[in-house]
Deep mutational scan, measured.
Amino acid sequence: QKPIVRVFLPNKQRTVVPARCGVTVRDSLKKALMMRGLIPECCAVYRIQDGEKKPIGWDTDISWLTGEELHVEVLE
């Protein structure tokens, strides 16, 4: 079983991306966001920890988040 990260996107959409070492959250999600007309710069990404949303940086190595759920939200 490959290491993955589940990602909840705006508009009730979601995707799953591989959690590859040395790849940033930005690079992992860029294609999924672009297909939906979004760019990382207009969004914020969060991980859910103890039921709370914790913001994470787009430059975080995605392999550190293996098995986690991330939420991407459009910044107002």
Rank of each mutant, 00 (worst) to 15 (best):
G67K: 11
R47D: 06
C42G: 15
V74N: 12
E69G: 06
L9W: 11
A32H: 08
L9H: 00
I39G: 14
P40R: 11
V16R: 03
E52C: 08
K31T: 06
W58H: 02
H71Y: 12
L75P: 13
M35S: 10
V16A: 10
C43P: 00
G57S: 11
T24P: 06
V7M: 02
Q1P: 03
F8E: 08
I4N: 03
A44Q: 01
P55Y: 15
S63G: 11
S28A: 06
E68F: 15
A44I: 04
V17S: 01
L29M: 07
H71T: 09
H71M: 10
P3D: 15
K12D: 11
R47N: 08
R20P: 13
V23I: 12
L38R: 03
R26S: 10
L75H: 11
D61I: 03
F8K: 11
G67L: 06
P18Y: 15
W58L: 08
R47L: 07
E69S: 08
L75I: 11
V17W: 01
T60L: 09
C21A: 15
L70E: 01
K31L: 02
P10S: 01
G51P: 07
D50Q: 07
G37P: 01
I56M: 09
L70R: 00
G57T: 14
V23P: 02
E69N: 15
I48K: 14
E52P: 08
Q49H: 06
V74Y: 04
E52S: 09
C43F: 11
Q1S: 05
I4Q: 02
N11M: 07
V74H: 12
P3F: 13
C42T: 15
K30Y: 03
L29P: 00
E76Y: 02
W64L: 11
M34Q: 13
P10N: 02
E68C: 06
I48Y: 14
Q1T: 14
D61N: 09
K30C: 04
C42Y: 07
S28I: 02
P40G: 02
A32W: 03
E68S: 09
L9M: 08
K31P: 05
R20M: 12
K30M: 06
M34K: 15
A32G: 08
L29V: 07
V7F: 14
I39N: 14
N11H: 12
V16C: 09
Q13D: 04
L70Q: 01
G67R: 09
Q1W: 03
S63E: 11
I56A: 11
E76G: 12
R20A: 12
P55I: 06
T66D: 13
K2H: 05
G37C: 06
P3L: 08
E69A: 06
V25K: 00
C42I: 07
S28P: 00
A44W: 06
L75C: 15
R47E: 08
V25H: 01
Q49R: 11
T66Q: 10
M35G: 11
C43H: 15
C21K: 15
M35R: 15
A19G: 05
L29S: 01
V74G: 13
Q1K: 15
L33M: 12
R14F: 14
C43G: 01
N11F: 03
V25S: 00
S63V: 05
M35Q: 13
G67N: 13
V5F: 01
R6V: 03
L65N: 10
E41I: 03
L70Y: 02
W64D: 15
I56W: 02
I4W: 01
V45T: 10
D59M: 07
K2D: 13
R14M: 10
V16E: 13
G51A: 10
E69H: 09
E52L: 07
P40E: 14
L38D: 03
L33W: 02
E41T: 10
W64C: 15
I4L: 03
P40K: 10
R14C: 10
R20N: 10
P55K: 14
A19I: 08
V25F: 02
V25A: 05
R6I: 06
G51D: 13
N11W: 05
P3H: 15
L75Y: 06
K12E: 14
M34W: 08
D27H: 10
